[in-house]
Design a protein around this nucleic acid. Structure first.
Lengths: 211, 211
DNA sequence: GCATCCATGTAACCAGTTACATGATTTG
DNA sequence: CAAATCATGTAACTGGTTACATGGATGC
């Protein structure tokens, strides 16, 4: 699931793992970031698959401009050697990743995955959906809308279930009822929200519906 | 996490695994039940811990009342033998579980666990909180309220972050902004909901706040 | 007597976590 | 130069999943 987030972030710019983790934190909304223990293996996996690749580390000497001194050159040289040494010898030092064509394809694939039933990954998709053409965006939202309608219906079905002469005064205690009511209003608000999204999307990218 | 649900359900009545799964499904609200692959191991674990125990299978001859025939008796006898044979020989056949005193203690422990940051387990706690004394119930809700306030605050902090002269027109695209807005209103609604819960709780069980 | 549901369980896997180990860079 | 922070990674564990295997009970 984090593949999506990682590829999304790397589409915008090349980053190293540690930085990715920080960006991820607010991409996912504060709580529930990713831990290093899954971040680095995930990156390694993506690299092995060819979706990302470690790019040449930008030496990042912050433009020590013509001080004439050899010190600047020397520092740059040292940094370069360190980087290479680090990579080849001990495997330590910043490893900056960039996305590949294969990675971009994979991103699109993940973004257009028809499954919108998982709330967290849907949110991720929305957060990254600007990488999608407008039509696919609308389709994503529509699909989610349908999912929410399904949930609302199954909730209503559960609300007044049997109508049989057996059970007396509703077999749910006040707390279960409160939860049900909350679920119901939450879904309604979510539906309204996605309808607003769809509306603003159609306004921004007006076009005929084919078929 | 499912321990809580299992113990909660078994507090009301003795049940076997298959039935538990069905009850669980609507306790958790339709989606995301439990799979057999985790249900049975969970029950086995709880049994080993002594929180539940397999009770004598109620033979459940549905009161074939004095038909005089030996057939009824025979059927009952057979059912009994089958049950015992099943349990001792092949390990198959319904295994009805009941909660123990230790299990009840464990339930209370799980229900009063101060961590209310996980949404799903909080919902579970609410669904089962009638097993809690009113005071602990209020405390559960209060804690959740505080958690929601925390989330709202950290969200607001992220909303207008730097106010520095650097960044121009908000560094978030429309979709990220839409998500943020949705998070915010969701939390507000959740706060209102829990306030209603607290209010109705205080009405139902009015009492002085000590300390 | 065959299909279908009821019922219990195991094994392999999966996606993530925490805890640990290591070392480089920056800063007071 | 010590402490804090940046940075990468491994190992063990956790809490669940799906797929599989087994077999009893029911109904047509």
């Amino acid at each position: 699931m984090f593949d999506l987030a990682l590829l999304g972030l790397l589409t915008d710019q090349e980053l190293h793992g540690y930085e990715l983790k920080k960006r991820l934190a607010d991409l996912l909304g504060g709580r529930s970031s990713i831990s290093f223990g899954s971040l680095y293996p995930a990156l390694a996996r993506l690299e092995k698959q060819g979706a990302v690749k470690a790019v040449e580390q930008r030496t990042e000497v912050p433009a020590s401009p013509m001080s004439g001194s050899l010190a600047g050159e020397l520092a740059a040289f040292r940094a370069r050697s360190r980087a290479v040494a680090a990579r080849t010898r001990s495997g330590r030092g910043k490893k900056v990743y960039g996305i590949t064509d294969l990675g971009r394809a994979r991103l699109t694939e993940l973004l257009t995955d028809p499954d919108v039933s998982d709330d967290r990954s849907f949110e991720l998709k929305v957060a990254l959906c600007r990488h999608l053409p407008p039509g696919d965006r609308v389709e994503l939202f529509e699909r989610r809308r349908a999912e929410l309608v399904r949930r609302r219906d199954s909730l209503r079905q559960r609300d007044q279930p049997v109508a049989s002469p057996t059970a007396g005064t509703g077999r749910l205690d006040r707390y279960r009822r409160a939860l049900l009511e909350r679920d119901s209003t939450t879904i309604d608000h979510d539906l309204a929200w996605i309808d607003r999204l769809l509306e603003s999307e159609r306004q921004a990218f007006p076009q005929e519906e084919p078929t």
